[in-house]
Simulated scan of single mutants.
Amino acid sequence: MTIHSISTKRATRSAEARVAAQDWGALVGDLNSYGCAVMPALLSPEECAEIAALYPHEEHFRSHVVMARHGFGKGEYRYFRYPLPDLIGGLRTALYPRLAGVANDWNERMGVAQRYPADHATFLQLCHENFQTRPTPLLLQYGPGDFNCLHQDLYGDLAFPLQVAILLSQPGEDFTGGEFVLTEQRPRMQSRAEVVPLRRGDAVIFAVHNRPVQGTKDHYRVNLRHGVSRLRSGKRHTVGIIFHDAK
């Protein structure tokens, strides 16, 4: 069975079940403490292979970006077109409500007025009213020597403050190097780096831009960027789930 032979309804139910099975108390605790959290085995090895195999087929994608042409690093990625593959769309829908509560709590602690609706369809409607209509989930491909510079995926005025990346390849077998890296730029302090170990099928939730940190008197915000270290050998595929659409 391929990813496209699963009905949208079945894929959504499957996504909701596997998202609900995660330890959300621990995940939210890690997000609040470190700005990232790992969901183990969100996808099966077979699902990882099926998604990675979509990469050469242009009919699934709206655009193709070669990073070196834009100074983003080395490697390439493709943005999916609508309709998204059922499993990716289902995960995007199922993950959003779990993360909207975290996003609203963070904004309240940072004194940011923006609040996010409880369901993803309503949030996407807000994006589209803001002329952000292009889908942002993407499939990334790295080869030897490739890397992704530290960056933030904002894409427009309305940006959801958390996103998810799922590793589709097996470290040590399919590739070496290529670690997911997150950095925090703290006011009047040196930056902190976080290297997140992942296995095939694991997903990392992470802050896109800012997150709150408790200071001596009140919360303050830190600025985050994410990237991928240099691939030493092999090939690495990742799917990124970004919850806001782009202009």
Rank of each mutant, 00 (worst) to 15 (best):
D86M: 11
D86G: 15
L87D: 02
I88Y: 02
G89L: 02
G90E: 01
G90Q: 00
G90I: 01
L91T: 07
L91I: 14
R92F: 00
L95N: 01
L95P: 02
L95A: 05
Y96G: 00
Y96Q: 02
P97I: 02
L99Y: 11
G101F: 01
G101V: 03
W106K: 04
W106H: 04
W106Y: 11
E108I: 12
R109Q: 15
R109H: 12
M110R: 03
M110S: 05
A113H: 13
R115G: 10
Y116F: 15
Y116S: 05
A118I: 07
F123R: 00
F123K: 01
L126Y: 03
C127T: 06
E129N: 15
F131N: 15
Q132I: 09
T133W: 00
R134H: 14
P135W: 01
T136M: 12
T136H: 08
T136V: 12
T136E: 06
L138G: 09
L138N: 12
L140K: 02
Y142T: 12
Y142G: 08
P144Y: 03
G145H: 13
F147K: 05
N148A: 09
N148R: 05
L154K: 07
Y155A: 09
F160R: 00
F160Y: 00
L162R: 00
V164G: 01
V164T: 14
P171K: 10
G172N: 09
G172V: 09
D174P: 09
F175I: 08
F175C: 11
T176Y: 06
G177Y: 09
G178R: 12
E179G: 12
F180P: 08
F180H: 08
L182D: 04
E184L: 03
Q185H: 13
R186C: 08
R186Y: 06
R188F: 06
R188I: 08
M189P: 03
Q190S: 13
Q190L: 12
S191Q: 12
E194S: 14
E194K: 10
V195E: 10
V195H: 07
G201V: 06
G201Q: 03
D202A: 10
V204C: 09
I205V: 14
F206T: 04
A207V: 14
N210Q: 14
R211T: 07
V213M: 11
Q214F: 06
T216E: 11
D218N: 15
D218M: 14
Y220T: 05
Y220N: 05
R221C: 07
R221A: 15
R221Y: 06
N223P: 05
R225D: 09
V228C: 12
S229Y: 10
R230G: 06
S233N: 14
